[in-house]
Design a protein around this nucleic acid. Structure first.
Lengths: 213, 213
DNA sequence: GACAAGAAACCGACCGGTCGGTATGTCTCT
DNA sequence: AGAGACATACCGACCGGTCGGTTTCTTGTC
């Protein structure tokens, strides 16, 4: 009973709690609309703790983007799609994995760094760069599989593994915006279905759903 | 010399100037980070004028989204791609037109309502709905051409004209986010190139760039 | 293992400035 | 004269950030 859950957190947890709170609150409200006190209240810590661990609100945003990268990096590194022998199956498995991650509320499954990018790209370069590193770094985990699939399937075109990898992230980000605008997670699933179809077509596959009887 | 440009605007212009300023400032800074006084300064009007024409900051955001819809609606209605006889050429012409609109700074060619959606989807339903109407309304202008192209080219699949039309908007929105994150308009062009390739593949075309010698 | 001493973690009152919004007055046009 | 279109002064709430202080952990010494 040394760590009583929602009441006062144990010593040493404040930084972690603030970062976790930042993911949830900023995804729901946006960066600019989230006050330092909002974060403190959500984390159950005081303002003193906040500015002990972070020099400024902007500093926290950068740390939150890095925290996001670490969390999502671990999630995808442990995902089952890596087990496929066929590199194209790994790429399509990634897309399916992203589709299956769409659960719960919009703020729960959408992307922190995509949200923060829109708000800070012109005004807070440090945050923007941290967001860019998160997105491109994650895209980078797809490049090797795409390159290998291109080789195995003898595909070449006016696009590179890097370009396609980054495009997957663009489609996901855009799908999230549509879902937010229409307040409907299915809009995100639709976008991901189109992405999957595109990749299958690029590699000469006919999507299973479209084989006619 | 009754309307001396940057100095005091003529009477009757305040509302229009505020809406135009909102497009520029909110696209650059985001909605929450833009204060009413920022808007007034950019428009060259006083706070009194602002609250004479708009009941609240949120009210202005809704009006700005509608203003955005009207402006972009006129721009696309007058665009040359409608002249093609082939409906697929009209659809691909739309995509090319979007590509050619990428000029100038990021804030100049990216989408107001995509930005505002991210910030307000969970906190300001009125703004979100105005943004959704702008996006889905614009997507709607593509549906008829897509449907006609499907018929002419005998294409059927597990997707509808509406789904593909909305997907084009999602890809564009996502491409803008990538461009903002990497501070590089070419990231947006890359995303649009992938979108064009996807549509071509859906309709059984081999993109010109990929025909091998 | 007792204990002093420093460092790190945390607390919460407080500050100057900014925010969205209001109240009221003035100008202009009909 | 009346109404719409502003302009100006102002308000209370809130914001990011500071600061002096307290508690808790760690470390060195004997």
């Amino acid at each position: 009973m040394s760590s009583p859950g929602t009441s006062r957190p144990a010593r040493g947890e404040a930084r972690q709690r603030l970062l976790d709170a930042a993911l949830a609150v900023i995804r729901a409200q946006g960066y600019a609309a989230t006050s330092v006190e909002d974060l403190c209240a959500a984390a159950g810590v005081t303002k003193g703790a906040f500015f002990h661990h972070f020099r400024s609100k902007e500093d926290l945003a950068v740390a939150a983007a890095e925290h996001w990268s670490a969390l999502t990096g671990a999630l995808f590194a442990a995902a089952p799609y890596h087990a496929h022998e066929d590199p194209l199956a790994r790429v399509l498995g990634y897309v399916d994995f992203r589709r299956d991650l769409i659960r719960g509320s919009l703020a729960e499954f959408t992307c922190l760094v995509g949200t923060m990018t829109q708000e800070t790209f012109a005004t807070a370069p440090a945050i923007r760069d941290a967001c860019a590193a998160s997105i491109t770094g994650h895209a980078g985990t797809l490049e090797a599989d795409i390159a290998e699939a291109m080789q195995r399937y003898g595909v070449r075109g006016a696009w590179t593994p890097r370009s396609l990898a980054r495009h997957t992230q663009a489609v996901l980000q855009g799908a999230f915006i549509l879902a937010k605008a229409t307040d409907d997670p299915d809009a995100a699933r639709d976008g991901i279905a189109h992405l999957r179809r595109y990749i299958a077509l690029l590699f000469g596959q006919t999507p299973a759903e479209e084989t006619l009887p």
